[in-house]
Structure formats: structure tokens, C-alpha cells
């Protein structure tokens, strides 16, 4: 190989190195994305051999006739907004606290990070069991504290089901952003902090003028990562409620899956996928433009 490669032009060598990753990426990620757009203009039940071009029928059906779509869209947006804010605020607070000189820092860090490495489907199972209305943790705690009136059907009441699922999501996701923030805090210069202290700056001033500016790139990354992650909320909802009760916790990604893979309407499923893709792009494209303009900030 080394003999042959010597005679190979450098650029060609580069393409050889690039090829395997590029090939698998194009075949199994990029092509399906193009395919889903094509499918969204066709009618196909997954059983028959061919599909039929139907124009924008699928989109019209999804937008005007689907009794679940708008609820799922609303849930997805709502979930995304909350998932970007709430867990990350907790993570940020935890990271700041764990960056202080307190005993047992590393054990505490492990405790908060542990849920991250657990499969979402296991998190769903754990929390579903804790929410069990008759024998689960929450309702037995409420009973033993004499608060039986507070007992609710955590996953069966549409007013709170999505909140219940969200609580599990917070438990699971706080640790991930926390580690990123902790890593970002390593880059905050200690000398700068000390200098500020000596200059008589208070806690808040140090935080505001030294810590926060240094963390800006990290905050951006955390923001984008959790935004993307929450748009694809699937496992945890699938495992905990399956979209119920009465589709009230349905999400776009799962509804697209349900339409295609369970109801066999691949056209409508694809139309929902494309809509979710467009929403994702609305986030991704501005971020990418920003990143390629300021490559230093982005890393």
C-alpha cells in the first residue's frame, strides 16, 4: 500500500481517506432525507409495489384534516422551548456550584451525570413506574405524607401528562449540559478572577464581567445542542405515554413514525417529517452561517 500511495496525488489520497465516511453518510443519511421529500408528494401504503404522485395532497391532509397534527406541533414547540431553558438553567447553576471549592465535588458530579448515560427508554420505564397511580413512588409518598388529595394520574391526565414526561427529561438531561458548562468554566482564567477580587469586585460583578463572557461560546453550543436534541424527542415519549392519553402528548417525530410505520400512510408520515425538518433547518441554517463566519467563536 505504501508504495502505491507514494505515487498517488495528495488530493487523491485525501479522497481515499474521505470516501468511506462520505459514502455511508450519503447513502444512509442524505439520501433518505431527499427520499422523504419525494415521498411526501406521493401516496404509498407500504404494502403495494408502487407509489402514486399526489401533489400536495398529503400536506393538505396533514394541515387541514389531521386531528392530531396541530397538537403534536404545539407540543413539539412547547417542549423544545422549555427543554432549552429549564434543564440548562439547572445545569448552569449546578456547574457554577460544582466549580466552587466544596467537598465531594467529583462524586456529586457523577450523581448528576449518571442519568445521562442511561438509555432514554430505561428512563421512561423508571419514571413510568414511579408515576404508577396505585403503587408508584409519587403517589405512595403523597399518601404517606397525608396528602392523598394531591394524588393525580400523572400520565393519564392530559393536563399534566406532558409535564410528567418533561420532568423525566429534566432529570435525564441536566447532567449533559452541566458537564459542558463545567468544561467551559475551566477556560475562565483564575488570575483574572483573583485580579477582579483584589480590585474589590463583588461576586456578582466577577460573574457578570469575567465568568459570563468567557462562557459565551459554551452557552451557544449548549443552546444549539439542546435545541436539536429536543426537536427529536422520541424515545422518552414513546416509552412513557406512547403519545397518549388521547394523543395529548404526541410529538411530531413520533407522529410521523406512527403515520408511516404503524398506520402505513408513508405519504402523510413523510409530509410531517418534512415539516419537522423545515423547523429544524430554521434553527440550523442561521447557526451554521454564524459559525462559518466566526469559526473561532464556534469552537
Amino acid at each position: 500500500m505504501s508504495k502505491a500511495s507514494l505515487s498517488m496525488r495528495p488530493a487523491l489520497q485525501g479522497y481515499v481517506l474521505l470516501a468511506p465516511a462520505l459514502l455511508v453518510y450519503l447513502l444512509f443519511a442524505v439520501y433518505p432525507m431527499i427520499d422523504v421529500i419525494r415521498m411526501s408528494f406521493a401516496s404509498w401504503n407500504g404494502l403495494s409495489a408502487e407509489s402514486r404522485f399526489v401533489g400536495i395532497d398529503n400536506y393538505r391532509a396533514v394541515l387541514t384534516q389531521d386531528p392530531v397534527f396541530w397538537g403534536a406541533l404545539w407540543n413539539t414547540l412547547w417542549w423544545t422551548a422549555l427543554a432549552v431553558v429549564i434543564p440548562n438553567l439547572i445545569s448552569f447553576g449546578l456547574a457554577l456550584a460544582l466549580n466552587q471549592n466544596v467537598p465531594g465535588r467529583s462524586s456529586l458530579r457523577v450523581v448528576f451525570y449518571l442519568p445521562v448515560i442511561i438509555a432514554s427508554i430505561a428512563v421512561a420505564t423508571i419514571w413510568k413506574w414511579m408515576y404508577d397511580p396505585f403503587f408508584g413512588l409519587f403517589n405512595s409518598l403523597l399518601t404517606s405524607w397525608g396528602l392523598s388529595d394531591w394524588i393525580v394520574d400523572w400520565l393519564g391526565d392530559r393536563k399534566i401528562a406532558l409535564w410528567s414526561v418533561f420532568a423525566a427529561h429534566v432529570w435525564q438531561s441536566v447532567g449533559f449540559s452541566m458537564v459542558l458548562f463545567l468544561a467551559g468554566l475551566q477556560s475562565v482564567s483564575l488570575t483574572l478572577i483573583e485580579a477582579a477580587r483584589i480590585d474589590g469586585a463583588g461576586r456578582w460583578a466577577v460573574f457578570r464581567h469575567v465568568t459570563l463572557p468567557a462562557l459565551t461560546p459554551t452557552i451557544t453550543i449548549v443552546f444549539v445542542l439542546s435545541l436539536i436534541n429536543s426537536l427529536k424527542a422520541f424515545d422518552i415519549v414513546y416509552g412513557m405515554t406512547g403519545g397518549g392519553p388521547a394523543q395529548s402528548t404526541q410529538m411530531l417525530a413520533m407522529w410521523a413514525y406512527t403515520q408511516s410505520m404503524q398506520l402505513g400512510d408513508f405519504g402523510r408520515g413523510a409530509a410531517i417529517s418534512v415539516i419537522l425538518l423545515l423547523i429544524t433547518l430554521a434553527v440550523v441554517v442561521p447557526y451554521m452561517r454564524w459559525m462559518f463566519r466566526n469559526p473561532e467563536d464556534a469552537r
Binding site: 447513502l27 444512509f28 443519511a29 439520501y31 433518505p32 432525507m33 427520499d35 422523504v36 415521498m39 444549539v224 436539536i228 426537536l231 427529536k232 422520541f234 411530531l252 417525530a253 410521523a256 413514525y257 408511516s260 410505520m261 408513508f266 408520515g269 413523510a270 417529517s273 419537522l276 425538518l277 429544524t280 434553527v283 440550523v284 447557526y287 451554521m288
Partner: peptide, 14 residues
């Protein structure tokens, strides 16, 4: 940033 959860059906098809 491409969420594959969005495209389960076309991935399956591929």
C-alpha cells in the same frame, strides 16, 4: 444537526 428520528420511515425504506 440532522435528527434521524425525523426520517425513520425513509431510513427504513433505504
Amino acid at each position: 444537526m440532522l435528527p434521524f428520528q425525523v426520517m425513520l420511515a425513509p431510513i427504513f425504506k433505504q
